[in-house]
Design a protein around this nucleic acid. Structure first.
Length: 257
DNA sequence: ATGACGCGTCATACGCGA
């Protein structure tokens, strides 16, 4: 089973390249972030023509996540517990072929020292508690999306540039580590020990041309899912397209048995 | 310290992202 996560930075702006990419790569499960559209306006038919079922938690203008599956899935949750006032669309969960897919767009949190940063920290606590509780089921759980967390120094080109940033904050990194310490596995890092494995490059300041990137899009696996991990890779080439997203897809394949 | 790009919006400047 081929599974991919992709922050598209606007599904309308990306629809043509998205459809072309899906035709070529044919993933079984697709997790999208920053679709920036409300559910009613999502271009369902373009994906349905390729055989995908669409499960949406959209929002006008900002945020918005989706799970697409080749065949019918069961939408199980669109709310991350722990804050009934949270109106931002950053979480969706679906079951497909006896696996649980949790697609997230974790808050950016910048700048530090504001309510945005506090919201990020609380959101991460909520996610960690959710993922901790989920382990009890012993299901195969795939948590994937834009985490807005640079886990380690080797996950950015110039760590000095990020020391004051919410993506590389020590509390934020500790909360990401909490998830790993529960027994979840970072699917890219576990199979690739080299540096410069980036998933996002700023549009500005020639960041792509100079490979000034960061690794913030992650696929995190529960132990039972990790047992089936065959490969993990980052599809860097998409950043070369015309009108690219600033992020690129992150892939895993799981064995069928 | 600032701005740089790009997306979306009851647009034609501004919020937001990373």
């Amino acid at each position: 089973m081929k599974i991919v996560t992709f922050n598209v930075n606007g599904v309308r702006a990306r629809i043509d390249t998205l459809i072309e990419w899906l035709k070529e790569t044919n993933p079984d499960v697709v997790a999208l972030q920053e679709i920036k559209i409300q559910d009613a306006d999502f271009p369902r038919s373009a994906f349905e023509k390729l055989g995908y079922h669409c499960y949406l938690n959209g929002q006008k203008s900002f945020n918005g996540v989706a799970i697409l599956t080749k065949g019918e899935a069961k939408l199980s949750n669109r709310i991350l517990p722990g804050d009934s006032d949270d109106k931002q669309s950053r979480f969706i969960e679906a079951y497909y072929q006896e696996k649980r897919f949790v697609c997230i767009y974790l808050p950016n949190g910048n700048p530090k020292g504001t309510e945005k940063f506090e919201y990020k920290l609380k959101w991460m606590d909520r996610l960690n508690q959710y993922c901790k509780k989920a382990l009890i089921s012993e299901e195969e759980i795939i948590v994937l999306g834009d985490f807005n967390v640079i886990p380690q120094y080797i996950d950015c080109k110039y760590p000095d540039q990020w020391t004051q940033d919410a993506l590389f904050d020590s509390q934020v990194r500790a909360k990401f580590n909490y998830l790993l310490n529960l027994g979840y596995l970072d699917a890219i890092r576990i199979l690739n020990e080299t540096d410069s494995l980036f998933t996002q490059w700023d549009y500005r300041s020639r960041a792509w041309e100079e490979n000034n990137g960061i690794r913030i899009d992650h696929v995190v696996l529960s132990p039972n899912a990790a047992d089936k991990l065959e490969k993990s890779w980052i599809e860097t080439s998409l950043r070369n397209q015309e009108k690219p997203s600033d992020h690129v897809p992150v892939w895993i394949s799981l064995s069928e048995k």
